[in-house]
Amino acid sequence: MTMLYRTQVTHIGEYAADALNDNMMILFNDNAPADVADYCFIHPAADLTGEIKTGGQFVLGASRYPITAVGDVVNQNLAELGHITIRFDGGAEAEYPGTVHVAGQCPEALVLGTELIFQTE
């Protein structure tokens, strides 16, 4: 596996964990607008060194999730804003252009320092 993107959670918005109850998490880099940041898991900007694609993996802490679908603007949004949504539903088609779908159980909670990695084969 080749690492495409690596960062870690440095701030958890007041309502960010609520999205986990809906099997999703919203990521945004540390330049997130204040009104949006309350709903996001915030991370430092990082370089996207390749294209996130179906068949790759999303690594969240010690858990690995196969990527099942990638929206049309995921790579651009992640590279420019660090902003995408991860859906833990194994969807075969992206629900929204900025969404990555992965297979596996959504975490119940995240802690500061949790690593976020995207990899490709």
Score class of each variant (00 low, 15 high):
94 A>Y: 08
83 H>K: 11
90 G>S: 07
97 P>F: 04
73 V>H: 13
73 V>N: 13
84 I>H: 00
88 F>D: 11
97 P>T: 07
77 N>T: 06
82 G>R: 02
99 T>V: 15
90 G>E: 02
87 R>K: 11
91 G>K: 10
84 I>D: 02
81 L>D: 04
82 G>V: 03
71 G>V: 06
89 D>W: 02
86 I>Q: 04
77 N>C: 07
90 G>C: 01
96 Y>F: 12
86 I>G: 03
93 E>P: 00
91 G>D: 15
96 Y>D: 10
73 V>E: 13
82 G>Q: 06
86 I>M: 11
97 P>Y: 06
95 E>Y: 14
84 I>N: 01
76 Q>C: 00
72 D>I: 01
83 H>G: 03
80 E>M: 12
77 N>I: 09
96 Y>V: 07
92 A>C: 02
97 P>I: 01
77 N>E: 09
74 V>Y: 07
96 Y>E: 11
90 G>F: 00
93 E>T: 15
80 E>K: 12
82 G>W: 07
84 I>A: 01
71 G>N: 08
84 I>T: 03
89 D>N: 15
94 A>H: 09
97 P>G: 04
96 Y>Q: 13
96 Y>L: 15
101 H>N: 15
87 R>V: 02
91 G>T: 04
92 A>N: 13
90 G>Q: 06
87 R>W: 01
100 V>S: 10
79 A>Y: 06
81 L>P: 01
77 N>H: 14
91 G>N: 15
71 G>D: 10
80 E>P: 06
86 I>R: 04
93 E>V: 15
79 A>N: 11
92 A>H: 12
87 R>G: 01
93 E>H: 10
99 T>D: 12
74 V>G: 06
74 V>N: 05
81 L>Q: 11
71 G>M: 09
74 V>S: 08
85 T>F: 00
96 Y>T: 14
71 G>C: 08
79 A>E: 12
100 V>Q: 09
79 A>Q: 14
87 R>L: 15
94 A>D: 11
96 Y>S: 13
98 G>W: 00
97 P>W: 03
82 G>M: 06
93 E>N: 10
89 D>L: 10
80 E>Q: 14
78 L>I: 08
82 G>P: 03
93 E>A: 15
84 I>G: 01
92 A>I: 12
101 H>C: 13
87 R>S: 06
100 V>D: 08
76 Q>K: 14
93 E>I: 11
77 N>Q: 12
93 E>D: 10
85 T>S: 04
93 E>K: 13
80 E>V: 10
86 I>E: 00
72 D>V: 03
86 I>N: 04
73 V>M: 11
73 V>L: 14
101 H>K: 10
78 L>C: 06
79 A>L: 07
89 D>M: 06
82 G>S: 03
82 G>I: 03
93 E>M: 05
81 L>T: 09
74 V>L: 08
100 V>W: 04
98 G>S: 11
75 N>F: 12
75 N>C: 09
75 N>D: 14
101 H>T: 12
98 G>P: 02
99 T>S: 05
79 A>P: 07
77 N>V: 06
97 P>A: 07
92 A>V: 14
83 H>Q: 05
75 N>Y: 13
81 L>Y: 12
87 R>E: 08
89 D>E: 12
99 T>Y: 04
89 D>I: 03
78 L>D: 05
90 G>W: 02
100 V>Y: 07
84 I>M: 00
79 A>F: 09
74 V>F: 02
82 G>N: 02
83 H>W: 05
73 V>S: 15
